[in-house]
Design a protein around this nucleic acid. Structure first.
Length: 429
DNA sequence: TCTGGGGTCCTAGGACCC
DNA sequence: TCTGGGGTCCTAGGACCC
């Protein structure tokens, strides 16, 4: 048995935790660069579509009918950690699937009333973290995801649905579109629809062998999962990362190589930091730059990559490589909107394969420098110490006009509580 | 006007091995 | 004239997820 715990409107809920004044107000959270809506509170869902641009909803914001927030990843990551830690009280097997979802292994919990257990999970997460969640329970992960999907949308479920306690699961599956199934995306939906498979029930009853031939092993496994045969096991230990990407659109278009280089140096530094956090070294490193997708008259994209020998997570080395790659990729005369750096062929830092014929490299001093920089930046400010190539006054920076606070990770941004004099209280202490 | 960021997995096809 | 069988590894591209 599996439970899927899914945080409702996660980013919007995180913002609301620290703004009790917005309790029943419509709240939307924007993507990086304040580009478009990526999360909506229940009150905001009727007002704004997902991915609506800020421009298209500005009138609501100005009239005070909608509260928007810029993306605050540090806050969301920390709130996610709190939710996961709470869930670990309910099962020894917790698999964090995404920033706002986790699977719980419920093997050996069969003697319990699992619907009731789901309610306990929900109430505890709400009380300990302030985040509302939906819980789906079923005999496979795919079914648990669908159960959570239904639990979130039907008030009668009170946030929890256990398919195993339900008589007519097929009736429920017949009412859900096939596109809602985990693993069935846009393209597969269109192809399945063309064959008359419109609902989850129809997919469950389809010819699994034929679908395997047509769409591959994943679709067949999904069909088996819908039939209650578990094909996707719990994976409580996160697999090591295979790639690290830092990718950002600029605040506005950039035409000069020097400006793009500053941005790419900044992304490379961030990427090196991530690798050090992971304890990984990159063997392969790439830079990609491109113009806006939405300007057909101004299209250019280029990727350049290089092998790093020996593999490294040293900021200076990555910036140096990135500068060469950026120069190679750059072509004058275009309006650039986005750059990214990609580190691949990652190996654990403590298990490096040495080179037989190369002179031995001693990176101990560099490692100590990086450790010190990381410590300073963590303690003081994300770029208290930075490399000159990253520039002093970035002109390409992100827009972020509706930023809240890093309430839970920075002492000077911690929420404050107004304390009223005791005499104004209603007599209790 | 503006339209995000960061990842994983599978498949087909070619090259190559004994 | 007809020319096996069984396998691995790599890459690019496509699909999916949140």
């Amino acid at each position: 048995m599996f439970a899927l715990v899914d945080c409702n409107s996660f980013f919007a809920s995180c913002e609301k935790v620290f703004r009790p004044d917005l309790a029943n107000q419509p709240v939307a959270v924007l993507s990086n660069n304040d580009g478009c809506v990526v999360a909506r509170s229940p009150e905001a869902k009727p007002l704004v579509p997902m991915q609506a641009t800020l421009f298209s909803i500005r009138h609501l914001v100005q009239r005070g009918k909608l509260h928007v927030f810029s993306s605050n990843p540090v806050l969301y990551k920390d709130m996610s950690r709190r939710v996961i830690e709470t869930l670990q009280h309910f099962s020894p097997e917790v698999e964090q699937y995404s920033i706002d979802e986790a699977f719980l292994g419920l093997h050996g919990f069969a003697h319990r009333d699992l619907t009731d257990y789901g309610q306990q999970i929900r109430a505890t997460v709400q009380q300990w973290t302030g985040i509302p969640v939906s819980v789906g329970i079923a005999s496979t992960k795919t079914l648990a995801k669908l159960a959570a999907h239904v639990a979130k949308r039907h008030l009668g479920c009170k946030g929890v649905l256990n398919f195993n306690a339900l008589e007519e699961v097929d009736q429920v599956l017949a009412a859900i579109a096939v596109s809602e199934v985990w693993g069935i995306g846009r393209h597969l939906t269109a192809k399945l629809q063309a064959q008359g498979i419109l609902t989850v029930l129809q997919l469950k009853q389809a010819d699994a062998k034929r679908l395997k031939k047509q769409f591959g092993i994943l679709v067949m496994r999904t069909v088996m999962e819908l039939r209650g045969i578990a094909c996707f096991p719990m994976e409580p230990v996160a697999a090591p990362k295979t790639m690290r990407i830092v990718s950002r659109s600029f605040g506005h278009v950039v035409t000069e190589l020097s400006e793009i280089k500053e941005a790419v140096a900044t992304y490379a530094a961030r990427c090196a930091e991530k690798l050090r956090d992971d304890g990984l070294l990159a063997h392969q490193f790439a830079v990609a730059i491109r113009t806006s997708y939405y300007r057909p008259d101004n299209q250019y994209a280029a990727v350049r990559s290089v092998s790093l020998e020996p593999p490294t997570n040293d900021t200076a080395t990555l910036i140096h490589a990135a500068m060469g790659l950026t120069t190679a990729a750059f072509k004058p005369g275009y309006d650039y909107l986005k750059a990214k750096v990609i580190a691949t062929e990652l190996t654990p830092a403590d298990a490096v394969q040495g080179e037989l014929f190369a002179a031995p490299t001693n990176t101990e001093k560099r490692d100590r420098l990086m450790t010190t920089i990381d410590a300073l930046n963590r303690q003081l400010h994300p770029d208290a110490v930075k490399f000159g190539a990253m520039g002093l006054n970035p002109t390409w920076g992100l827009r972020s006009n509706y930023f809240s606070q890093r309430y839970t990770t920075h002492w000077d941004e911690i929420p404050t509580v107004q304390v009223w004099p005791l005499s104004q209280h209603c007599g209790c202490n």
